[in-house]
Write a protein that binds this DNA or RNA. Structure first.
Length: 894
RNA sequence: GGGCGCGUAGCUCAGUGGUAGAGCACUGUGUUCACACCGCAGGGGUCGCUGGUUCAAUCCCAGCCGCGCCCACCA
């Protein structure tokens, strides 16, 4: 047993213990035959650094892993990083730019090598930071979404999905990011409301019989218009259907078509159709019989104007950026009389009507997204979604909190084809080869593709890579050895036990793991999906670098210790709510750690040491039997809370137990037994044994939340057979519960509390010792008073006296059947005591009368649950008796 | 337009069909060598508003007000 310093210094112990655990392989001790328990960590981006959201996410996971490990399971927390295609490519490109270079100065191979170099140097930052939080991950088997095994899994999945017809190449509109020069998925598009304009155009009918008016937010796209649509039943336009319009500027002849898409209520009721540059118009175009290959395209990859297939775009517009082109085209339309001016309320004329419009932006680049006609690879998500929906309906995967199920279903049921190809260099290269005619051959190797295509056919590999989420969707099984490992349960680790993620990646990641996991493993990837919220700034705002209101978790660890930060996260994690950063609270949990530290110091100083046994020691004294029962009750509460993933309840249970039960009462109550004179040696010994045992249980129970301080104290309390991280979780043994001991200590606590409150209220000097007389005491109370004499003397500063109290001023209080009288002689302010008693009487009477009122209501007695009536009767009798005894005490005061 | 969530003590948050809790902050006080990052005692809430269901509602239902988030093709 090593003596503990007076102040707890987290920094001193954290790195020491972490290194020890990791070096000794304690994050995944050998446990042959033990029940496997598995959780996979959401792989952070290699470009990332630990932010406060990671701190929450990983704390919750570590609590579950450590709990499972303490319970003796073969717990494994799979860890690794994600190659994060776009993000990582951007980081490396930015570095090149800073050095005056650019990506295209290099060959693809050379650039990708540079990214790997960057990854080797900087990609480990976040995993080092996770260690500071105390995360007990299986580092020995760390994975990367582009490591060799993973790449095999990705190839296999791509090829199989293709063979099954669930992955295909298609020409359709895609969300194109002109800044990054790649397609992105629906989920990577953020729609924002921006101030924009609404231009009203009039298109001349080809036969010269007049005009048809249309409105648009994107006038420049008129260069690729292929129709004007009106509602088939719209009386105003019905006769025009089938006529031709001669487009301004290009002079192209386009038809007026009838289509349900045109809403007679909106604008003029007629709408220009640009199938190559608008998702709605694409559908209208298809219905009008236009094939994707024929749709006019007027933009290049950078969203500058290019010549359309029919060559009708005037040369002076070619090469203009889309926003420049808009200005030029509006001006020309105005000059040529095709722009209908907007007249505002004051009667003034403008080119356009101001209006807020929904505009799509790329979530990475911040660029306005262009619907663009390209060939891309798509996954038939709707088909894969069906089993994923069913799995949640049947409960095979339970979503916690349940309220997210609806969101999950809603998204899954309306899911669109998932565009998985990206025009980037960094990522999993698509295993497809094209011949000269553009025919694709999909295979795991070039040889196989060649075999499909036939001898001598020249093949070129698809230059594109896969969406990062395509690979991370395989994380729950590809990290466990699939596909080499053909065991359908992957050694009992698939399905994973639980997945913890922020709700912000429910669609990006969780849903896609469900789809891929069910498709390839025929089982759900995880039995429970726990979704937590965001960590927000103190003022409730979302944290962001641009706002400059981020809180650095490492800074919090430096200031308060990792244990305090972890406990904060756990205590604040109630299901379904975001967490607001509250540094005062964090400070409070730092204080909690110090409190525990000092409790352990007290134990050390009083000969209390590491328990020799797992089971609770046998005990005779009520106080010891009571703390054993309280410990058991806390284990039960913790197990329940953790099973329900109620991290806040779990944290609060152990917090309350440690501070309010163990420190505030138990340690105070046993002081006379440890330090008093004339204590039987057996009693002192029993108490030391029980206290040591209870402290041990506290350390084990608190360990998942506060691993560092608990491990330190565990080691300092005496010799141990093993480290705390691999200790045994307490057994919730109901046999240790003792109602009579609990009742006695409960009575003692109430009596001491009453004495203290009364003393304070009457301004009895803290140091003054009072004589304690009792009247109307039952035999049980008399016995308890005798047994608890030392505790009462110490905590209440009272000395028990025989016989009735002498007449005169006294402090009186009622606990259960007995009235306690503490004579105060001349010191007492009789008026103050009368007032105090009167207040107590009033309170008891108020409750009594309230209960009487309820009992006097016939419908309550008739219709309420019998136990509710019974309880009301009992409470009423008790309150009535209390009021009477207090009144008697008041009367005695004279 | 659809969906979800939130509104409980000054602040941050739990909570239950039977008259409300925690941490911090606040007030008073400090005898007892574990701890002032502490102890003891205390004040403080018409549980957003309005109806309804019920013997009984902060908790269930409906509407309203306020706040936030997600999804969606109004040109």
């Amino acid at each position: 047993m090593t003596e503990l310093p007076k102040t707890f210094d987290p920094a001193d112990i954290e790195s020491r213990w972490y290194a020890h655990w990791e070096d000794e392989g304690l994050f995944r001790p050998e446990r042959p035959g033990a029940e496997p328990w598995t959780i996979v960590n959401p792989p952070p981006n290699v470009t990332g650094s630990l932010h406060i959201g990671h701190a929450l996410d990983n704390t919750l996971q570590d609590i579950l892993v450590r709990h499972a490990r303490l319970k003796g399971k073969d717990a494994r927390w799979v860890v690794g990083t994600d190659h994060a295609g776009i993000a990582t490519q951007m980081v490396v490109e930015r570095q090149l730019n800073a050095a005056g270079q650019k990506r295209t100065d290099f060959t693809r191979e050379a650039f990708v090598d540079k990214v790997w170099e960057w990854k080797a140097e900087s990609g480990g930052q976040i995993t080092r930071q996770l260690r500071r939080l105390g995360c007990s991950m299986d580092w020995a088997n760390e994975r990367f979404t582009m490591d060799e095994g993973f790449s095999k899994a990705v190839l296999k999945v791509f090829v199989e999905l293709h063979r099954q017809g669930l992955l295909y190449r298609d020409k359709r509109l895609v969300n194109w990011d002109p800044g990054l020069g790649t397609a992105i998925s629906d989920l990577e598009v953020e729609t924002k409301e921006v101030r924009g304009n609404f231009w009203h155009l009039r298109y001349p009918l080809a036969d010269g019989s007049g005009f048809i008016q249309v409105a648009t937010t994107r006038p420049e796209t008129m260069l690729a218009d292929m129709a004007v649509a009106v509602h088939p039943e719209d009386a105003r336009y019905k006769a025009l259907i089938g006529k031709q319009v001669k487009l301004p500027i290009t002079g192209r002849l386009i038809p007026i078509v009838g289509d349900e898409h045109a809403d007679p209520e909106l604008g003029s009721g007629a709408v220009k159709i640009t199938p190559g540059h608008d998702f709605n118009d694409f559908e209208v175009g298809v219905r009008a019989g236009i094939k994707a290959g024929e749709m006019l395209n007027m933009l290049d990859a950078k969203a500058a104007i290019c010549q359309t297939q029919d060559g009708l775009v005037p040369a002076e517009l070619i090469g203009l950026d889309r926003f420049e082109a808009r200005k030029a085209i509006v001006q020309r339309l105005r000059d040529e009389g095709f722009l209908v001016p907007f007249v505002d309320k004051e009667g003034a004329e403008h080119d356009a009507e101001p209006r807020t419009i929904q505009t799509p932006y790329g979530d990475r680049s911040g660029q306005v997204i262009e619907p663009w006609l390209t060939d891309q690879w798509y996954v038939d998500a709707a088909t894969l979604a069906k089993p994923a929906i069913e799995a949640v309906r049947s409960g095979a995967t339970k979503i916690v909190p349940k309220s997210w199920e609806k969101t999950y279903f809603n998204w899954m049921e309306n899911i669109q084809p998932w565009c998985v190809s990206r025009q980037l260099w960094w990522g999993h290269r698509i295993p497809a080869w094209f011949d000269a005619d553009g025919q694709a051959y999909v295979a795991e190797t070039e040889e196989e593709a060649q075999a499909q295509a036939g001898e001598g056919v020249a093949l070129t590999r698809d230059p594109d890579v896969l969406d990062t989420w395509f690979s991370s969707a395989l994380w729950p099984f590809a990290t466990l050895g699939w596909p080499e490992n053909s065991d359908p349960t992957l050694g009992g680790r698939y399905s994973n036990d639980v997945l913890i993620s922020g709700f912000d990646i429910l669609f990006f990641w969780d849903a896609r793991m469900m789809m891929q996991g069910l498709h390839f493993m025929k089982e759900v990837p995880f039995k429970t999906l726990y979704l937590h919220g965001l960590v927000r700034a103190a003022d409730g705002q979302k944290m962001s670098k641009s706002k400059g209101n981020t809180v650095d978790p490492l800074g919090m660890i430096d200031k308060y210790g990792a244990d305090a930060l972890r406990f904060f996260m756990a205590a604040m994690e109630s299901q379904g709510r975001d967490i607001k950063m509250d540094e005062k609270r964090l400070e409070g949990y730092r204080n909690f750690a110090t409190k525990l530290w000092n409790a352990a110091r007290f134990c050390q100083a009083n000969g209390i040491a590491a328990s020799k046994h797992l089971e609770a020691p046998t005990a005779e004294l009520a106080v010891n039997r009571w703390i054993i029962a309280e410990t058991i009750a806390t284990v039960q509460a913790l197990d329940l809370a953790l099973a329900d993933l109620r991290f806040d309840e779990a944290a609060n249970s152990i917090y309350q137990f440690v501070w309010s039960r163990f420190c505030d009462w138990y340690l105070e109550l046993i002081k006379p037994l440890l330090q008093g004179e004339g204590v039987a040696a057996a009693d002192a010994e029993e108490t030391r044994a029980v206290a040591g045992w209870a402290l041990d249980q506290i350390l084990v129970m608190l360990h998942p939340f506060m691993p560092f301080i608990t491990e330190e104290l565990w080691s300092k309390m005496g010799p141990r057979e093993h480290d705390l991280i691999v200790a045994k979780w307490p057994m919730a043994d109901a046999r240790a519960l003792d109602p009579s001991a609990a009742q006695e200590i409960d009575w003692l606590i109430r009596l001491v509390s009453e004495i203290r409150a009364a003393r304070t209220e009457l301004n009895v000097p803290p140091g003054a010792r009072l004589a304690l007389h009792v009247r109307d005491a039952s035999a049980e109370t008399v016995a308890r008073l005798a047994r608890q004499e030392a505790a009462l003397a110490r905590l209440g500063r009272v000395d028990q006296a025989q016989g009735d109290a002498p007449a005169g001023g006294a402090l009186q209080l009622v606990v259960d059947e007995a009235t306690f009288v503490m004579p105060l002689g001349d010191v007492v302010d009789l008026e103050a005591e009368r007032a105090r008693l009167a207040k107590a009487i009033a309170a008891a009477e108020k409750e009594r009368d309230g209960l009487a009122g309820r009992l006097g209501n016939p419908s309550f007695v008739e219709r309420a649950k019998p136990e509710a009536v019974e309880k009301a009767r009992a409470d009423h009798a008790e309150k009535a008796a209390e009021a009477e005894r207090l009144s008697a005490a008041l009367a005695r005061l004279g």
